[in-house]
Design a protein around this nucleic acid. Structure first.
Lengths: 196, 196
DNA sequence: GTCTATATTGCGATAGAC
DNA sequence: GTCTATCGCAATATAGAC
């Protein structure tokens, strides 16, 4: 293994393994073998298995930071919600393991939950909430809806579709070619529900 | 430990532990200690840790079978969707660990996923889909919506609210006293979105 | 920076006494 | 039906050679 490629090789190989089996479901031997690297390199570069996991999670959740750009994007609040939905779908297509870490940490939290996952989720909800308030202020959205329930419903509609894929693959077509239809479907339900 | 109380004690103690840490996150020693039972009882009653986990999962998911009653319930399709939402909320209040197992298995499947979890999820979606078709046939629902996307959106709105609780507890009030408001909120969004 | 070899601990499972 | 004691193995981590 050449140079510090070891480090990136380990992260690259560990990502799908941790995503599929969870932190406790994978061993260091398996991680090292998948990366084509010696076991001791995990301690050398990451100070142990937990450090490697933290590095993987940190990389995965860094993709969520782009949601903050929604605040400064152009367009009305409904258009911004559509930007969020489109970005979410695109993110899952580009970073297919993110949702696994997301729900795995929500369900069986590791020490990384407080330091990495919770701040990331709250950041996204914060942006969505602010956008909702903006829509209410500009009288584009109804003022009689609970803001938190509304943005959680929006996030739930789009995220649950991908979360349930392993169980519904034979019942529902999850092909990327259908993404545009899915996005317009979610936006259709949302718009009818929240527009004033 | 008296009689075969061992068995039920183990299931009762294992449920919150498996829910919080996942299958690989708990050891047999911890399980036995929490149940106040000798380690060897796990093999004696369940033929090993995996058997105990399967017993826990089987019990948890048996609560989903009641969704099938929706098919024979009285009321129009929209009222039946509301029955589903109410039953889901009530189920999570009564069986607070179910959602953990649900998402844990979706994200990091064990052998139980195919035998227990997948059939349960598909059963629920089947009932919801049939109800949607009924609503379209009776012209109560719009006919231009994708049925699968619609029922997944409904399930997502209500399930995601509970899934995100660990991350949003300080931002969103998850008190049971707000359940009625949540239910009416979800039904409000759904009704505006799908009614003809 | 990378390897081998090993220390140490914990795991799940069970034989056999009672 | 329940216990103690232990087996066999895999886990993570690291010391020390190169």
């Amino acid at each position: 293994m050449a140079e510090n490629d070891c480090r990136s090789q380990l992260i690259a190989a560990a990502t799908p393994l941790f995503a599929a089996k969870g932190f406790h479901g994978v061993g260091v031997r398996e991680l090292a073998a998948a990366a084509g690297v010696n076991i001791s390199m995990i301690s050398y570069y990451f100070k142990g298995k937990e450090g490697l996991y933290a590095a993987v999670l940190s990389e995965q959740f860094s993709t969520l930071k782009s949601v903050a750009q929604l605040a400064t994007a152009q367009g009305d609040p409904l258009a911004k919600f559509e930007l969020y939905v489109r970005a979410t779908v695109a993110r899952y297509r580009k970073t297919p393991y993110l949702l696994r870490f997301y729900t795995s940490e929500l369900t069986n939290p590791t020490p990384c939950f407080e330091s990495i996952v919770k701040p990331a989720i709250r950041g996204v909800l914060r942006v969505l909430l602010d956008n909702f308030y903006e829509g209410v202020s500009s009288r584009q959205f109804r003022s009689d809806l609970n803001p938190a329930d509304t943005v959680l419903a929006l996030a739930g509609m789009i995220n649950f579709y991908f979360l349930l894929e392993p169980a519904t693959a034979e019942m529902v077509d999850h092909a990327p070619e259908r993404d545009e239809e899915l996005i317009r479907h979610v936006m259709e339900l949302l718009a009818r529900g929240i527009l004033a």
